[in-house]
């Protein structure tokens, strides 16, 4: 396994007006690793994730993807970097006016410049991978939440990203639909995708994560293997948080 860092967050800061959300975040995600972020709400997890493709503009610090700093360069460069950083949202955000396969094709055609046939073929591959090839011509509103989220994953995957960011991908789902999304994520991990996941699915973290990061108050409080964090947390705040959520 190469240990080249695929995503590197260097002294990242974010303020909204006078409110400091991220104080000083440093994090490395090695190629093929799944890093799992936990922490109480308001700890800055989602903001940190959204800074990684500059949906949220950082107030300071650097984001380095595959050796390139995405904080420098033109807006065209940024669009090109965003292609390399896939993102999955809590609310799916499929385009409601387009069929499933068109959802997966759009950015391939417009941002990557693939031909329609090429994009369609790739889209069908990805839909097959998330188990939804048979829904290709359905409209998003006809799908369950779990299916919509899997399409959203396919949409990001079709662009051949180097890293995938997951922002609470299962928290808007009914409990019985969570499993299908998690198993797609597990499959991705098995195929060597580099992933940064913000979620409350502690069981999934224990089972799949290479490293778990506990954030609180805009800082990384503690990080380590799942065994270390869940089994023997060092910091008081980590212990307090875990006892609250795993009770």
């Amino acid at each position: 396994m190469t240990n080249r860092p695929m995503l590197e967050i260097v002294s990242l800061q974010k303020r909204f007006g006078d409110t400091v959300v991220l104080r000083d975040i440093n994090l490395k995600v090695a190629q093929g690793d799944l890093v799992f972020i936990i922490g109480p709400s308001g700890s800055g997890k989602s903001t940190m994730l959204r800074c990684c493709n500059r949906l949220e503009e950082p107030s300071g610090g650097d984001i380095i993807v595959d050796g390139r700093n995405i904080m420098s360069g033109t807006s065209r460069d940024l669009d090109r970097m965003r292609l390399k950083v896939g993102m999955v949202f809590q609310g799916f955000h499929l385009y409601p006016h387009m069929s499933v396969v068109k959802n997966v094709m759009l950015a391939q055609c417009k941002a990557l410049g693939r031909s329609a046939e090429e994009a369609r073929a790739r889209a069908m591959d990805m839909l097959d991978r998330v188990g939804l090839a048979h829904k290709a011509s359905a409209m998003p509103a006809e799908l369950s939440g779990g299916q919509q989220q899997r399409v959203a994953i396919a949409r990001a995957l079709a662009l051949d990203p180097l890293v995938m960011l997951f922002d609470e991908p299962t928290s808007a789902l009914d409990p019985e639909l969570v499993g299908s999304v998690l198993s797609v994520m597990k499959d991705l991990k098995a195929k060597g995708m580099t992933m940064l996941v913000v979620s409350h699915e502690m069981g999934f973290a224990r089972e799949t994560a290479d490293r778990v990061v506990f954030m609180d108050g805009g800082l990384v409080v503690e990080e380590g293997s799942p065994e270390e964090i869940f089994g023997a947390p060092k910091a008081d705040r980590t212990r307090a948080f875990l006892s609250r959520v795993t009770r």
Partner: peptide
Amino acid sequence: GKGQWEAARSTGLSQTQTLISVVLPQAIR
């Protein structure tokens, strides 16, 4: 919704592309 803009921008579509392909069709409907 803002999520539509974010989803499109996160897949590398530019502001203009997002407006034309994603936002305007929904807005007009």
